[in-house]
Every structure is written in C-alpha cells, then in structure tokens.
Write a protein that binds this DNA or RNA. Structure first.
Length: 340
DNA sequence: GGATCCTTCTTCTTCTTC
C-alpha cells in the first residue's frame, strides 16, 4: 500500500497531462481528443481507479499523514520507538487561567530612559535553578506529538544520510554558527549605534562562518535603534520560569523583544518559525512582570538570517498577535506543570 | 575539575513544468 501511495504521490504532477485516468476534470486532456495517442489506461475499468484518483485530486494538501508517513518510514528505516501520532492541539484551547501579559503597575514608556549601555542581567549560575525551568526547556518538553514525530523523522533521515558521527558534527556546527552569530550581533548592538555611521555593514569583515548571516541582517539593523537590553535574563515574578532575551530595542520605532535566528531553509512566513513566536511571547511576558525592568514590551520581532547573505526575513508580532501567543504559552506552561 | 544551566538548531509531501 505504501508503495502504491508513493507512486501516486510522485505521479501527482503527471496526472493532468496525459494519463487519461477516467475523471471528468481531465476531459480537456489532449489524449482524449486524439484517438491515435490513446493511452492504454483510458480503456481501464474506471471504477477501479476512481477512488484512487479522487484521493489524489480531492485536496491541495497531501493525503499523507503522520500515520501513513510513519508506516512508510518504518518500512524504509525501521521501527520508530518514540513516535506518537495523536493530534491534540493545545493552541486550539484556552488556558485555565489567563495570567496578564501586561502589568498595570508599569507604564509603556514612549520616552527612552537615560542614555547608557544596554542592560545585560547575566544569569547567575551555581544557584539551584532546578525549581525555575527555562522557556526553552518548557517548550522542548511540551512539543506536540506531531512536532516530535516530524523532528524524529528528520533526525532519522539525517543519520541515515550522514551517519551518527556526521549528524553530531552537523548539529554542533549549526549550534556553533548560531552562537557566533549571536555574539557578533550583540557586539554590534552594544557598540552604541556606531555601526550606522562607521562603514556599511555589508562590507564589514566577520569570520567566514558568519559573514553571510551578518550581511543577511544588515538591512534589518538599519531599522533597529534605542537598544535597551541584550542577552539579558528575565524571570516571571509569579509563573516561575526564566529565560534569556536576545535583544530589546526599537524596530522601525516600535519597542520589541527581538529574537535573532539562523536558518538553512528560507522562512518567509511566520508559520515557518514553529514555536519561535511562543518563545518571544514568553520572554516578553516575563520581562513585563520582572521588577528589574521598569518598562514593558508589547511587541515582538523574529529575524531569520541566512548563510548565503540573502536578505533576512523579519516577522513582526504586533501586540494582538503577542497576546494570542501568550495564551499558547500559558497552555504549554500548564502542560509542563502537569507533567512534573 | 566536573556537572548543570540557558542558549544555539532541527519539523510541516513531493514531484514537474513554465
């Protein structure tokens, strides 16, 4: 069955041309109007293929599901141990308690605070932080079954291609590049906006590994100003979680929590960024309740940089959208708390 | 010195044709 499905899937692009499968949508196919070029399929029993063809053309999205893909993958790669395929979507529900995203005791500042270097509250290590989980940990431990399935599937394919060691090296490279990119961006943002006057960012020299990423975000940095914080720790005062915010600054005049990302694949739409918007909302919500910060931030920005230097995608999260992702975050937090 | 923490990433079907 999976072989048949894969053939049908691959043949999807062929069907409208000239297979002459007995479906009325294909009446315009030139094969039907040309008896000489009649395909042998055109004399086949239409009943035999009707359900098959219907399944192919009935929707624009794939007939394949995690279940069918899993069956295929088990045949190709062996049995998956941890895959789960039920489809509960916490995003569709409302959190039990709608904790506030904004805090009335703080005002949304329109004026910049006294000039000075951006804030950077370093996460103190060595303390017992086990009782305060991080945003990343909570998101990782509350992935949906679908996310777990596709991530594991991807990993299996990569290991099949690169081997265990090759995959490990590949992952380490991705992380290293991400770290270096973040450091370089932080250096720029804490240099007092000299970058805007000195020399054009595109021509500045960086280590080859991150040169493309820096070129990629140069047009975004032009619109960043009034940097208030970089790589700073935020902790929610009642919800018991913490995280490290990449940057708080104005983007095109709007105060945002900014998250810098590197990506091998293009991510032109917000939906391509998976849980990133939830992460940004979680950081903003923590910052808004954290007494170390006298202001609050309603908006977010996810910047996806590319190694080949092509222009980064900037996904703005306006306050209404941030509130939606804040609700999703609260749901994930509830799931996490129940698991503990 | 070693272990741990927070991050850094990774996912969504897949093919051809114009």
């Amino acid at each position: 069955m999976f072989i048949l499905k894969r053939i049908v899937s691959v043949g999807g692009g062929m069907v409208p041309q000239c297979t002459s499968l007995p479906v009325r949508n294909f009446s315009a196919c030139h094969c039907l109007s040309s008896p000489k070029r009649r395909s042998p399929y055109s004399v086949e029993d239409s009943e035999r293929y009707s359900s098959l063809v219907k399944s192919v053309i009935s929707s624009r999205v794939s007939a394949q599901t995690p279940e069918s893909l899993q069956a295929e993958d088990e045949h190709i790669y062996g049995r998956i141990v941890k895959a789960q395929t039920s489809s509960t979507r916490p995003e569709m529900k409302e959190p039990r308690t709608l904790h506030p995203f904004l805090h009335s005791e703080k005002t949304v500042e329109t004026e910049e605070p006294e000039s000075g270097p951006p804030a950077r509250i370093v996460l103190e290590r060595g303390q017992d932080r086990s009782s305060v989980p991080s945003v990343t940990r909570i998101l990782q431990q509350t992935l949906s079954p679908e996310q777990i399935f596709y991530l594991e599937r991807w990993k299996r394919k990569m290991i099949a291609e690169l081997g265990e060691d090759g995959f490990k090296e590949y992952s380490q490279n991705l992380f290293r590049q991400g770290h270096h990119f973040h450091s370089a961006v932080e250096d720029i943002l804490t240099s007092g906006e000299k970058w805007k006057n000195d020399h054009p960012l595109e021509t500045k020299e960086y280590p080859p590994e991150i040169q493309g990423y820096m070129e990629s975000i140069s047009h975004i940095l032009e619109d960043v100003s009034a940097v208030r914080a970089t790589e700073t720790t935020v902790q929610h005062n009642t919800l018991n979680y913490l995280g490290i915010v990449d940057c708080v600054a104005r983007y095109r005049g709007v105060l945002c929590v900014i998250d810098w990302k590197t990506s091998e694949r293009p991510k032109p739409f917000l939906s391509n960024t998976y849980d990133n918007p939830i992460q940004v909302a979680a950081y903003a919500g923590a910052l808004n309740s954290d007494g170390n910060y006298k202001y609050q931030v309603e908006n977010g920005l996810i910047v996806v940089a590319y190694k080949d230097g092509s222009p980064a995608h900037a996904h703005q999260l306006k306050s209404e959208l941030m509130l939606e992702y804040w609700k999703t975050w609260l749901l994930r937090l509830e799931v996490f708390t129940e698991q503990r």
